[in-house]
Amino acid sequence: MTQITLPARLDRLDDVFGFVGAAMQNAGLNAKRQNNINVAVEEIFVNIAKYAYPEKEGGVTIRLSVGPSKFSVEFSDGGIPYNPLLKADPDMSLSADEREIGGLGIFMTKKLMDHVEYRYENNMNILLVQKDIDTL
């Protein structure tokens, strides 16, 4: 298990990619899996950076755990309680003109990850995403 704590600010997104990217490289994940995990990681980090701390600056801790069959990323923040998984999925049947982009990020996260779980514990939002890495 390895972890990083950093300010929940958009200008730290590259640091987040760097931290998670190094672990994915070490674990030997293919381009597609790395991409899938990056999508989830960005969406969750950006959500926290934009909405968790409306009145003050706050932090976010990202914990990685890499097992033989799963790559897990857990985000925890002390911001306002918010479960992004409750957000309704976007309507995919609409045409370009009617499409709204809101909710797409969390939808992609749910689609691309194999397990997604939210809990609120000790005044912390905790969001865990997992990708199976033992299949081809």
Partner: peptide, 20 residues
């Protein structure tokens, strides 16, 4: 381009709409 997130999709959708 090896990676596109929802923010990228938003810009592509906007570009597509403006072009059309």
């Amino acid at each position: 381009i090896g990676y596109v997130s929802s923010a990228g999709l938003r810009v592509l959708l906007l570009g597509h709409k403006n072009a059309s």
